[in-house]
Amino acid sequence: MKLRNTAGAALAAFALVLSLPASAFAAQGYFHYKFVDGFGQEQHITLHDPHSGKCINLYGVGDDDEEPGYGPHNDTDAAVTVYLGVGCSGPEWTLRAKGKPARDDLQVRSVRFHTDRG
């Protein structure tokens, strides 16, 4: 009988975890940055509700062979650390939640959103 109760409790706990919204692991809001593509055109990229706690190599700039992105703007509810290197390496800078856009001379290739809000 104890085994059945334990299994039932474990199953209920597992179901509860599955029912949590995915947004519990994401920064809520938008993160923007710019980069110049291979045709010399400035592109504006927006990440919507980006995943928190893991390194994100940014589209169009997430390779050391490409020019880095620039002018990041963190309009999410979580602080973010921006990195000049891929894989969240190299010089870094932290942007606060719901902050103002950074200057265009702040370059970025990868980011990591903080799991604690703020």
Rank of each mutant, 00 (worst) to 15 (best):
L3D: 11
L3Y: 15
L3C: 11
L3H: 14
R4S: 13
N5P: 05
T6A: 15
T6L: 15
A7S: 15
A7T: 15
A7F: 14
A9L: 14
A10C: 10
A10Y: 10
A10W: 09
L11P: 05
A12P: 00
A13D: 07
A13Y: 10
F14A: 11
A15V: 10
A15H: 07
A15G: 06
V17E: 12
S19R: 10
S19F: 13
L20Q: 11
P21L: 13
A22C: 12
S23E: 15
A24L: 13
F25E: 05
A26F: 07
A26M: 07
G29N: 04
G29L: 05
G29F: 00
Y30I: 13
Y30A: 13
F31H: 09
F31P: 02
F31A: 07
H32F: 09
Y33T: 04
K34H: 13
K34A: 04
F35Q: 03
V36G: 07
D37E: 08
D37N: 07
G38P: 11
F39K: 14
G40Y: 08
Q43F: 02
H44W: 15
H44A: 07
L47K: 01
H48A: 03
D49C: 08
D49S: 09
H51G: 02
H51E: 13
S52E: 01
S52A: 00
G53S: 12
I56M: 04
N57V: 09
L58N: 07
L58E: 02
G60D: 02
G62E: 09
G62S: 08
E66V: 01
E67A: 13
P68S: 02
P68R: 02
G69A: 00
Y70C: 07
Y70M: 08
G71F: 06
P72I: 07
H73L: 06
N74S: 09
T76A: 01
A79G: 07
A79M: 10
V80H: 02
T81G: 02
V82Y: 01
Y83F: 10
Y83G: 04
L84S: 10
L84I: 06
G85A: 08
V86M: 05
G87Y: 05
S89Q: 03
S89A: 05
G90Y: 02
P91G: 10
E92N: 12
W93S: 09
W93Q: 09
L95I: 00
R96S: 13
A97P: 10
K100G: 15
P101D: 02
P101W: 04
P101I: 00
P101R: 05
A102P: 00
D105Y: 06
D105E: 06
D105R: 12
Q107A: 11
V108L: 00
R109D: 01
S110Y: 08
S110E: 01
V111D: 05
R112G: 01
H114Q: 06
H114E: 13
H114D: 04
H114P: 00
T115V: 10
D116M: 15
